[in-house]
Design a protein around this nucleic acid. Sequence first.
DNA 1: TGACTTATACCACATATGTGTATTATACTA
DNA 2: TAGTATAATACACATATGTGGTATAAGTCA
Lengths: 203, 203
Amino acid sequence: MDEMKTIDRRTRKTKKAIRHAFAELLSQKDINDITIRDIADLADINRKTFYNYYSGIYQIVDEIENEIVSTYEKVLGEVDIKRDLKNPYRIFERLTSIINTDLDFYGYLLSMRENVSLVSKIVTMLKAKTKEALHPQIEIDETTADIVLDYAISGMIAVYQQWFNSDRRQSIEEISSTISILFFQGFSGILEREEKGNSIYTK
Amino acid sequence: MDEMKTIDRRTRKTKKAIRHAFAELLSQKDINDITIRDIADLADINRKTFYNYYSGIYQIVDEIENEIVSTYEKVLGEVDIKRDLKNPYRIFERLTSIINTDLDFYGYLLSMRENVSLVSKIVTMLKAKTKEALHPQIEIDETTADIVLDYAISGMIAVYQQWFNSDRRQSIEEISSTISILFFQGFSGILEREEKGNSIYTK
DNA sequence: TGACTTATACCACATATGTGTATTATACTA
DNA sequence: TAGTATAATACACATATGTGGTATAAGTCA
């Protein structure tokens, strides 16, 4: 968003128009029913001009996704993964908050059928970040670490997806606490919490 | 596949030709580069005929996915989810085996960008099956159960995806054991196993 | 086998896609 | 502000898509 300033005003204007038209159309109909002609018409640009910037509809989505991942990455830089690994509540609380605020506008992307790519991008980024934080303090072999991270990160994102689809019924604290327990103690941790009847997040 | 026998021979022949052509083309190029004309030409049918059976390329994928999910569902019927929940090794071993055999032909689907839908279909099916097995024996509230299942099932599938993409380097026992531990004891269970140095699956 | 039912082929059309080329309009910069 | 760079347009073309109507071929069944 910063380097935008140095770019040709025409380019800036056109891309903005395309993005805006796309968002508008997306709010009206399914992505598969949106044609390039639709976008060009609504953005009031020549159809050819569209191809100067995007090779197709999904490349707009790709661009948006990359912006989202960048946001994640930046905010995650403020967390000390290494320190919090054995009590990851703080990490998950942070992630949940990001999703709850910055992602508000793009939230529906998470629930779209097509956007596995966003999920996999986030998975890739989080895996990289976590692995560099782990290495070499925690004694665990590479392959196992991969499995653990795949499992935990994908699981976490799935929870967020459902959270979105159910209009974020639970509080950030609830979600964070549950994911945190699932990650470190698994299902047995949940059973324990349920038995006690006093969850971590009760006020 | 059974009811196929009662269907008009022409229909049978045409659908088979389409499916075959699609598989052939898929092995040659990316799904996004496959046109309906390609399929019609290779299957040696009129382009219009294609539309008699499928509304588009992705509906073929959809059909294949549904067949895969059915296979899963059937084999999973042989497992006693309720009994094995606290020591889920058997369940995961069974699932891993299915993937390793029946899914061999369609395995690459799991690693395709587009096939989130397969994943979500499997998630939906497994969630339903698990919930009916849980209810009402295990004392856990509905919402929490949803979260646990989303987390565990999506995590599990992510592990399988990576397993596929790395050409199934680990044994079925290794994968099953790791997922099993992750599910019931979480990351702490993995750390414990690593410390002891004796994993469940060492012979 | 012969009458029927139905799948498929053939032709046609409106629209979408991707791309090339030449021209015009706009923005940058010295 | 004048000159230059480049973004955007206009136009055109080959191909793909989805769909409708009619004719033909193949399968089904009594």
